[in-house]
């Protein structure tokens, strides 16, 4: 269980997140939406351990989240999260090699064969079976994200963090990836947090949708107020008028204004 208790994040005078309190049960799939710069990625970084809370607490099973990333929380970024110098298979095996070989970070003989079988099985599952000996640059964008997901899952994290994982993919491929991630979520009983720009992803995937938005806004001091979670919706039970409101929040109004000016 993840508990967020009166959480604030500030950089100097710039308030990014203000006073967030939520509880997320194990096995939930939370989608985070909001305009760019609203703090949803900062929130994800705090879950990852890359950023610390300025005030308040972020607890996982009643213990503060560790101050650096570790194997209890897996991550998939939009890009750059696989190792370009390793083949697909090695990219997945390396996680077990980190675990089981403290000195060399490399396994040999029987130990290596066991890990290879495990990695191979996982890659089959995500649909990379025929591509195990390829290098990441030989893969398409969607396959590369499949690899990043397989890599993130091999150490069986309890929490999976997704930072706009499908943002760079074509719509058709994105639908395949949605199917894959839902399957893996159910099978591995993960708690998932996914940041996305695509609101339809938020309405369709997962169990819960959080909308990050600034409630108060001071045009003279844009950093004075931070974002809060203005909507916490249960996916599947969202009334249509709420949908319209959320669409208004997340659709980039600034761009419209710029468009009018030019």
């Amino acid at each position: 269980m993840i508990k967020i208790n009166k959480l604030w994040k500030e950089y100097g005078d710039n308030v990014v997140l203000e006073d967030i309190s939520k509880t997320v049960a194990d096995g939930e799939f939370v989608t985070l939406v909001g305009t760019s710069g609203c703090g949803k990625s900062t929130f994800l970084k705090m879950l990852l351990g890359m950023e610390t809370a300025s005030r308040g607490e972020l607890l996982i099973d009643d213990k503060p989240i560790p101050g650096e990333p570790d194997q209890s929380r897996g991550i998939v970024f939009q890009q750059y999260s696989v190792f370009p110098h390793l083949s697909v298979l090695e990219n997945v095996m390396i996680a077990r090699e980190f675990e089981r070989s403290a000195l060399l970070g490399k396994l040999f003989g029987v130990a290596k064969r066991k890990v290879r079988e495990e990695a191979q099985a996982l890659l089959e599952k995500v649909g990379l079976g025929p591509a195990v000996s390829k290098y990441p640059h030989e893969l398409s964008g969607g396959m590369r994200q499949r690899l990043a997901i397989a890599q993130a899952l091999i150490r069986k994290p309890r929490v999976l963090l997704l930072d706009e994982p499908f943002g760079a993919l074509d719509p058709g491929i994105r639908a395949d990836m949605h199917k894959l991630i839902l399957e893996l979520w159910r099978e591995h009983q993960l708690t998932v947090f996914m940041v996305t720009h695509d609101l339809s992803e938020g309405f369709y995937l997962g169990t819960r949708l959080w909308v990050f938005d600034k409630v108060r806004h001071d045009p003279q001091a844009p950093g004075a107020w931070g974002a809060k979670i203005t909507y916490d919706l249960t996916v599947g039970e969202i009334p249509s008028d709420t949908l319209a409101k959320v669409q208004k929040i997340t659709s980039p109004e600034e761009q419209q204004e710029v468009g009018e000016l030019t």
Binding site: Q71, G74, I75, Q79, Y80, V82, I94, E97, G105, R155
Partner: peptide, 21 residues
């Protein structure tokens, strides 16, 4: 890319692992 170093840490890599592998 920073993402790779973070990814390695979420896979359980030590500082030495990150440097070496």
């Amino acid at each position: 890319p920073q993402e790779q170093l973070i990814k390695a840490q979420t896979l359980g890599a030590s500082s030495w692992h990150i440097v070496w592998r």
